[in-house]
Computed example of a mutant assay.
Amino acid sequence: MNDVAIIGVGLHPFGRFEGVSAMQMGTHAIRAALADAGLEWKDVQFAVGGSWEVANPDAVVSLMGLTGIPFTNVFNACATGASATEACADAIRLGKYDIGIAIGMDKHPRGAFTVDPTLVGMPKWYGENGQYLTTKFFGMKANRYLHDHDISPMTLARVAAKNYRNGVLNPNAFRRKAVSEEDVLTAPMLNHPLTHLMFCAPDEGAAAVIMCRADIAHRFTSTPVFVRSVEVRTRTYGAYEVNTTFAPIEEAPSPSVFASRAAFESAGVEPGDIGVVQLQDTDAGAEVIHMAEAGFCADGDQEKLIAEGATEIGGSLPVNTDGGLIANGEPIGASGLRQVHELVHQLRGTAGERQVPGEPKAGFALLYGAPGTAGATVVTR
């Protein structure tokens, strides 16, 4: 079994780019990752790619060069990035290839994710009238969690304001304007307790991560970052979900819990070893919930930790240092690889103004995708 190292990362900025296709954004990210690793496209032996909007991400090779490499398309909703990372890392770990690339790209229209609900068995009109993957689910879930664990809406406002501040420091972010906690809290209410400014936005972007056998990483970089584990899990019970609620509201622990536990166990590290964290923050409530589900605190402890600044860039548990989804938005296929992009720069010490102090040695990323798939990744220096 080979250890796996990340030797190159690339990103197309997230936002709105009229006249630029998802595929073109994908090639931008690929070229940036190749430049970061000091490689050419012909050096890549295989690829894994994911997208929501692009039916065949493998077609990106037509723009990069027809070198004949194997290309596997993957999709797991918001957990697509973790799935691509896992497939790429495992192929190298098992010795089939030496160098590979994971790619994600998407170009979503404005508004809620209303694209083709028939893909998950819902009628077309369900999306057309705004009922597909809307804010309702997120609001109900956050409201129940805050009630059960005595957490105030101000905590949600603090999470969102922190992510907007971090986005200001990120030249690739979609939203790059600081927003005060008060403005977040008093913004128009979409679904209680979540206001408009507590949500991310579907948008456009691409990301790419190049990996290789760890024993050859020194040929390409003096600062490799090692993929210690990637674990993907699905639900064990219930369907308290975004788009297909056909089972009782009562549910077993989220797949985020099981994916996180498995990732830590496989990597041989504990949550306390992690110096920088990326959590799925489709809304501010999700970041709060995932802090506990991933094992970084007990349910309810988030209120105090967040109020004391633990999750700030200079805090004891920096979360979403690049602004997360709230500042970056979410092009689904690229979102998880953006998390890895940020962790790599943080562990290299090249994150610029948003660099976590103290030279973090390990990073963690968690994705959660409807209708109940979670992916957790641990990387180290």
Rank of each mutant, 00 (worst) to 15 (best):
P255K: 11
T234P: 13
N243P: 09
E204P: 06
E204F: 04
V232Q: 03
A208N: 01
S222P: 12
F258I: 05
C212E: 15
A259P: 13
V227K: 10
I249V: 15
C212A: 11
P224C: 02
E204W: 05
F246Y: 08
G205P: 06
G205S: 00
G238E: 00
E250K: 15
E231S: 04
E204Y: 10
G238P: 04
E231G: 02
F220D: 03
E231Q: 09
R233C: 08
S222F: 11
V242N: 00
I249G: 15
Y237H: 13
A259E: 14
T223R: 07
M211D: 01
I210H: 07
P255N: 07
F226Q: 00
V230I: 01
S254H: 02
A262Q: 13
H218S: 15
D215V: 04
F220N: 09
P224A: 09
S229A: 03
R228S: 02
R228C: 04
P255F: 05
M211V: 00
H218D: 04
I216L: 06
S256Y: 11
R219T: 05
G205D: 07
I249Q: 13
D215Q: 10
P248E: 12
R233W: 01
T221S: 09
P224M: 11
R235A: 11
H218I: 06
N243T: 15
G238R: 07
V225L: 12
A206V: 04
A207T: 06
I210P: 11
A259Y: 04
A239E: 08
A262I: 02
R235C: 12
F246K: 08
S222E: 05
T221Y: 01
V242M: 15
T236R: 15
V230M: 01
T221A: 00
M211I: 08
R219Y: 06
T245A: 15
A214T: 01
